[in-house]
Design a protein around this nucleic acid. Structure first.
Lengths: 282, 282
DNA sequence: TAGAGCGTCAATAATTTATTCTTGATCTAT
DNA sequence: ATAGATCAAGAATAAATTATTGACGCTCTA
């Protein structure tokens, strides 16, 4: 039980002095850091030993232990508050910049999470999990994201084939069959070539998944399943960053779902990581 | 700055004994509660006064103060979650998953921002801005990030050459000269091949920038400028996501700084985007 | 009203923390 | 090289904080 809650709940069967201590703690928990048991006693005009006994009666090893617990509780409740001290001008403006960029990203990622129903995500994760081969296409920014996701899939021992080029992908797809999955990343969903691929792929019995902005777009319309990304900012140089970030976050989420899909996935991930480490030493 | 982050970031310029203490704290932060300064000293076979001095050097009032701070930090990081009862639907668990992932990322990005001094970032942005050519090397996850950054630089009309392969990069570098920049992304900074490239590159008069985890590592030591990434999580399948995310965030920040470096940069970005749009319609 | 039970405090013991001082190692400038 | 400076580390010790003890007074009850 959190210490402050415990104190409150036992407050009623306490003696007068104990109640004084309890009240002080409840009101001043956040500045307990600077109080020794003696100082606390002085502040309340009671003896130091009363403070110690109070601590022990509540089940703590002693006063420092109580103090430590209260510190934890306060930290938890006040969240990840960062003490922001005013520094030099440059530091401030740059911190503000970082802060604002971060906030924008947070918003984009949050929006993105909300417009993709959990069931849908779970279904897609499941489909990928059972898939024979996973094909990924995307160019430009999308290509990089696709590549990253492909690497993640590989590390889970899922066969993933990534191409930026629709022509190359067309060739790869000719080996696809039922149970395979095609993940198409295309910000605006307007690449005809990709829509075309989708059609071919589905004819061969595979499932297609589109990942686009949440606008109406042909790619999304033609896909079996559609993931959506939301990212907006009036500063045109920022918007692509938000798109990237939200997209990656969405894919990360999918990755984590996959990790938890089956126990052996994580084992395979561990093994893959080991191999990577050995190569890395070269 | 959170105490554990502070410890990590100063770890490199510590003496051997101090490093022992630092490592112990980082690994055993959650059970520091039961250690007095003397017990900690005994566990590490060092003197108690060393522990106290360590605390003071880090800016704490004394050992108990350090302990208190670490307690807060641990409490915060192990989630301000008041263990929510029965998670009924799939929706809930997935939302929680997303939430936790997002919180971890936020922490990693925040930490990363804090350990890279604004001045340093500004200097690097400036160096890149003035550079003739920018070379980027990185493989695996780092490679994807490098590629992404290269694309961003290109969109600002900065000449950016990216390779995953050190051999190819070696060939490219032979065209480099004074005023050029080599950005080396390498999570653990242990790739000898990259260190080798760095040496070659600097001999030709170029400036090298390393981007690694904030551990002591050879790559970082050899570089003219070093960017650092902080990302930690006990769940081994999550940590790489955090690294990715924090790394990209750092590079995004650099990108934004570049955008604001000169007015014409934004204009060029707009033009580049226009061209991209036209291509995209195909 | 004697005495058991409890809470408080002052005194003090025990523990923990902080400081001082010494030693030895590593630089630095002559 | 070498004297001097600087620093890290530990031992010894001082200072502080914390914990325990025992005495006193209060209340309740048989």
């Amino acid at each position: 039980m959190p210490p402050l809650l415990k104190i409150r709940s036992e407050r009623d069967q306490m003696s007068a002095i104990e109640r004084r201590i309890a009240d002080f703690l409840l009101e001043n928990a956040h500045l307990l850091r600077d109080y020794s048991s003696q100082q606390l006693a002085d502040a309340l005009k009671i003896s130091q030993s009363s403070v110690v006994k109070f601590s022990q009666k509540l089940g703590f090893k002693g006063y420092p232990d109580l103090k430590y617990s209260v510190g934890e509780a306060v930290a938890r409740s006040t969240g990840g508050e960062t003490t922001r001290a005013t520094r030099s001008a440059k530091r401030d403006t740059q911190a503000a910049l970082a802060e604002s960029l971060w906030a924008s990203k947070a918003r984009a990622e949050e929006e993105t999470r909300l417009i993709n129903a959990p069931d849908k995500l779970a279904t897609i994760a499941n489909t990928i999990d059972r898939a024979g081969k996973v094909f990924l296409i995307g160019s430009g920014d999308d290509g990089v994201a696709a590549q990253m996701f492909a690497m993640q899939l590989s590390s889970l021992a899922i066969v993933a084939i990534h191409h930026s080029d629709p022509l190359l992908m067309a060739a790869s797809i000719s080996t696809a069959g039922k149970g395979d999955v095609l993940v198409m990343l295309c910000e605006h969903g307007q690449h005809h070539a990709i829509s075309h691929l989708s059609r071919q792929f589905r004819e061969r019995g595979g499932k297609s998944v589109s990942v686009t902005r949440h606008t109406a777009n042909p790619l999304r319309a033609h896909a079996d399943m559609a993931l959506l990304v939301s990212a907006h900012d009036e500063r045109t140089h920022i918007e692509p960053l938000l798109y990237q970030s939200a997209l990656l976050h969405l894919l990360d989420l999918l990755f984590v779902l996959l990790c938890e899909e089956g126990d052996d996935r994580l084992a395979k991930l561990g093994a893959s990581r080991e191999r990577g480490k050995q190569l890395g030493e070269s």
